[in-house]
Write a protein that binds this DNA or RNA. Structure first.
Lengths: 272, 272
DNA sequence: AGAAAGATTCCGGTATATGGATTATTAGAC
DNA sequence: GTCTAATAATCCATATACCGGAATCTTTCT
């Protein structure tokens, strides 16, 4: 069930898991003993690795000897996932949208079977969303932006994702396969997704895909707001503005970059 | 002079340097051969390490076998308690400032002998800055925000930083020690830094420190704009608004968090 | 299609990571 | 403030798993 390949992972992989432990733990820092335990390695080993991590600027020791991720880690991370410069390119659009619509705007990208929130600009209204904050993940198909991406993948990939995600969607209590497929058909036909499937009570949103030159979705822009703020009067306006930005954004993207295909790593990490 | 500690760094440290190489290189990915060369290790070694990095979700192989940092890395960092929550806490202030002033706003923090750009909100005018994008570093003392931080460090630390940074500043062609010290004195006296030292032609800026409860700088907010947009009329206004946000931000910070002290890693990584 | 450059795999020698035991340090109790 | 239990750091012999040259497979360029 789990991935622990029978032969112990390389020392490097164990060290990287240490980083995961640190990332998952209290931002104020974790005690060596707990780290060693969580990472399932001896205390001296954890210590030595943490020393190395600290020496390279990835970790640091806070007061009380607690270890935590250091700034360099965040600095490097800011450079990750920048392949298409998407976040950079989209930032102005997000700000404009948020300013124009006075709502919370999300930038989502596909990653494997998930949509990941790459950036988010807060509006004045408190919002509940699936993706949550930057870095949040949802199965493709759940939520407006996520659905907009899934609806605009090449057919074979879409099929694979659907097959894989159906149980995950059911787990979260939404959408049987039939309604998912009809929602996808509608999304592709009209070019955007609204909140017709009613997901979080009182919340509503619109998602539009950002398409590459071959009309495949590489990302999505979406608005999350209160249901009452997306009435029949306002909806078309919101859709139009979103589509305009999505199109402009598509034009700015490096056409060389293609959507990430299935990640090679094992599927067992999906649960993270 | 240089660090090559005579005993070769541990394999973990070498692997972490690989990550740095990836972060520094083309976001579209680097070829194995170039990575191996940049990291100064054999091709098979680089290959093996990259495989492990990929297996743990820190790197990935894009089309053309190119290796680059993976999105999971970003996700991991985003989900981890943002370094001291500063970025989170400051985001609204940055957005407000950018909206109010119509200029580019920077959030800088101290890290060792550098100021690091933690966040940045673009204004409508194209800006050249030392820190550049998120994650960019400058020696403490170079640039308005960076100077504002240095000016408000405890005396002993400030002295250590000055001593260390003088040659680095000279390298970049700016500021002899005397003018640095006088700029620091002025900065501390008036509580903000303007562009009096004339750094990038046509550019101007204002930086104010974000102080902790002991009046030590933990960060700085700064504005970068065109020189013509910071005339005598507007300057006081900008300073006042910046200071207001900096003060409000200081109030929101967890008083438990203290400025990062000197990182334990060797000084030789400064050149990065 | 051919050739050259690059990526991946293989494998033996050896450097190096490992964890138990030891010492040093910290945190908590009184 | 002192003592004690718990955690962190260090040491060291051992065996492991890392390393890089050479061979093979793959891609990219002419």
């Amino acid at each position: 069930m789990n991935d622990s390949d029978l032969q112990s992972p390389s020392s490097l992989r164990r060290a990287l898991r240490l980083l995961r432990v640190l990332a998952a733990g209290d931002p104020a820092g974790l005690r060596l003993k707990d780290i060693a335990e969580a990472a399932d390695c001896s205390q001296p080993t954890a210590h030595r690795m943490l020393q190395d991590l600290a020496a390279e600027g990835f970790a640091e020791q806070a007061a009380g000897k607690r270890y935590r991720l250091a700034l360099d880690f965040y600095v490097l991370a800011a450079r990750a996932g920048q392949a298409s410069g998407l976040r950079e390119a989209a930032r102005p659009a997000l700000l404009r949208l948020s300013a124009t619509l006075s709502d919370t705007i999300f930038l989502l990208v596909r990653n494997g079977f998930d949509a990941v929130c790459l950036d988010r600009v807060e509006g004045p209204f408190p919002i509940r969303s699936f993706t949550g904050d930057i870095g949040g993940k949802v199965p493709l198909g759940l939520g407006q932006g996520s659905l907009a991406i899934l609806a605009n993948l090449p057919e074979d990939e879409q099929e694979a994702v659907i097959r894989f995600n159906i149980p995950r969607l059911l787990d979260r209590g939404f959408l049987d396969e039939a309604s998912l497929r009809s929602a996808l058909a509608q999304a592709r036909a009209q070019g955007w997704v609204n909140t017709s499937t009613g997901l979080i009570p009182g919340m509503a949103g619109v998602g539009v895909p950002v398409l590459d030159t071959q009309a495949r979705a590489v990302a999505a822009l979406s608005v999350g707001t209160l249901a009452e703020r997306l009435n029949a009067d306002r909806l078309p306006h919101v859709v139009k503005i979103l589509q305009g930005e999505a199109q402009a954004l598509a034009g700015k993207l490096n056409p060389f970059d293609v959507a990430l295909r299935y990640p090679s790593r094992s599927l067992s990490t999906i649960g993270n």
